[in-house]
Nucleic acid binder design. Structure first.
Lengths: 347, 347
DNA sequence: CGAAAACGTGTAAGCGCTTACATTTATCTC
DNA sequence: GAGATAAATGTAAGCGCTTACACGTTTTCG
């Protein structure tokens, strides 16, 4: 006759083991761990000692299953390959940790289908809430999230009239500001290297921002050379080459993000163009790279860390039942460095 | 009288709901999802349709609790703030995803206590295996991991005789190679900006590498100016200043990683020192920054992506019961760019 | 001083899955 | 075509935890 589950030493200890050890019920142990003030000092001490002695750590899955919450927040970001989101996410995680939440990160490689899959995965894993980048995604995804009653916070973008809770900035306005600055310097033919707009509302908004500034200044749509390309330094290089080898190349090339701008900068160098004397180049995001570039990049500064930190705060507020936080619109500002100058004199 | 759990529409569907819908038992549904070939085509089709109709997604916690595995791999990396680990981890995740595993990332901010906590958290969350950076950590942590029977892969470091399974490179040899190169160029007084060695075996090894190369060349220990500092561009700047303002400053400053080197580069520029004419500077890791720096950084190239990809492969191999993989030692190589030259002529 | 309220603890019913084992049904074998 | 074997499915026992509810014991207070 085999004894059922002999309490051998080596196995991972469970709540029941602790209870037995401390001579209390499992309920008491559970309470000691979750709401200690419900347990009288004496008992609590005994239980905690048992926890120590056994090296007990609660089984997360079991806890999640029983309590129907995981103290976990999921985030799907377009890429980890670079530092665009890294700083913000790091701050996000730090703040979450401060409140006892854990972060689950997934990356979508800028692919819509992958993002959807990752979102479903995170939901299935029981994330208590989700942080997503930008608004653009399938209607069905939002519906699923609503059906599951999963709070979602959209970050890195802000539309006053969007239904989703969000924290971010107005990409149109931010980009328009920089474009205005360029136009103010005398530029009349602009180039824009954009990330693919099809699945990226932020990219679309930035293009819209350039267009808005141009319209205001009375420039025509044909004065804009727009190239869409994947995210990356090399792709930025190629795009810059493409733009600059046209019949009437622009005098300034605005870029949808700093990485593309650094690529453009490199291409300019290789083509023997001086920046900003021969051509101006600007970025967006103000990641570390921007300041390190040669010459340092004039770009739009985004308060990444603040955004991450406050995003965490908003989610925590919701999850601890303190009510739905207000959307927050962050201000961006233009960091003027050395890659934007007046256009070269006409020849 | 209240009816127990009326099957109202809005709630998240469970296995039982699917079973009812498809008119089979829960066991069959479970099998359809986990080992489809155990179920006959007809039934399977019916079940999958029910899954579709209901928009069912398995509850992860329940699954993990019942099956005692989570198809999740945990990784604790020292920082996400920068791209040192980003590329490798991205590749790691991609490869894991290809095999149906999910990655759980935590960052320790280069703090030993935090790392330990993160490891425990990941273990409690039921990670099936762990990826850790470097060997250095408390004995108790390794014991706990062994007790839990949790496979651990040490990455970014490789010691032939270490007991842990690992993939990485020999930091001593790699750094020694670069130091030898510098010495070969005629440098006799070296500086080294290192990450704090106390809790970082990779940093210690790199220092050891420099020392080894110096010994080989008959240089004395006092010919080395060693500064330890936290990871960061600013800290690199400060360290460089400190080293260069000593009575007999070195003619080359080797840096423990590219980020510190970029800081050093910046400090040199501010101090009016030309690189490499007045002073040479080198990095380690070959992250994107290295090539972008001005002038481009001579550094040790580490095959990050390959390391990440193969690390995933090793873990998958273990977890799918294909036996314990061999440790792998990756080769690093030196990327000669423009920051290392001969020492300036003596004055 | 006795009833009510407050407190500390225990009992036990799940949470939504997986899986060993039992049962039913289909397929062989001679 | 009967008995044996294999295949498909069902039954039900947990996995380790939380928590509603029940049950003593104290404390409180008119």
């Amino acid at each position: 006759m085999r004894i059922k589950t002999p309490k051998t030493g080596s196995a991972v200890p469970t709540l029941a083991d602790v209870a037995r050890h401390a001579n209390v019920s499992t309920a008491t142990v559970s309470r000691c761990l979750n709401s200690p003030d419900q347990v009288v000092g004496e008992t609590r001490k005994r239980v905690l000692k048992a926890v120590q002695d056994l090296g007990y750590a609660p089984n997360f899955s079991a806890r999640a299953l029983a309590a129907k919450r995981t103290k976990t927040i999921g985030a799907v970001i377009p890429t980890m390959d670079n530092s665009i989101f890294a700083r913000g996410i790091q701050a996000f995680q730090e703040e979450l940790g401060r409140h006892g939440f854990t972060l689950l990160i997934a990356s979508s490689a800028y692919r819509e289908d992958l993002e959807e899959e990752q979102i479903r995965t995170l939901a299935a894993r029981g994330a208590d809430a989700l942080l997503l980048i930008g608004y653009h995604r399938n209607r069905a995804v939002y519906d699923m999230l609503t059906a599951r009653n999963l709070p979602v916070l959209v970050a890195w973008a802000y539309h006053a009239d969007a239904p989703q809770m969000s924290i971010g900035f107005d990409n149109v306005t931010a980009m328009a500001g920089l474009a205005r600055l360029a136009i103010g310097k005398g530029h009349r033919r602009l180039g824009f290297i954009s990330a693919p707009g099809a699945t990226n509302d932020r990219a679309r908004d930035r293009v819209a921002g350039v267009r808005r500034a141009m319209r205001e200044a009375g420039l025509r749509d044909t004065d804009l050379s727009l190239v869409e390309t994947q995210y990356g330094i090399e792709t930025g290089e190629a795009a810059f080459r493409e733009i600059m080898t046209s019949a009437t190349p622009p005098t300034v090339v605005l870029c949808g993000n700093d990485v593309l701008a650094v690529g453009a900068l490199r291409a300019a160098k290789e083509m023997g163009l001086r920046v900003p004397q021969d051509v101006s180049i600007t970025g967006f995001d103000d990641i570390e790279l921007a300041m390190l570039a040669e010459p340092p990049l004039t770009t739009v500064h985004v308060p990444h860390r603040e955004m991450g930190r406050r995003a965490a705060g908003m989610l925590v507020q919701i999850l601890t039942g303190q009510g739905r936080p207000d959307n927050v619109e962050l201000k961006t500002d233009i960091r003027i460095r050395q890659t934007l100058g007046p256009p070269p004199p006409e020849r």
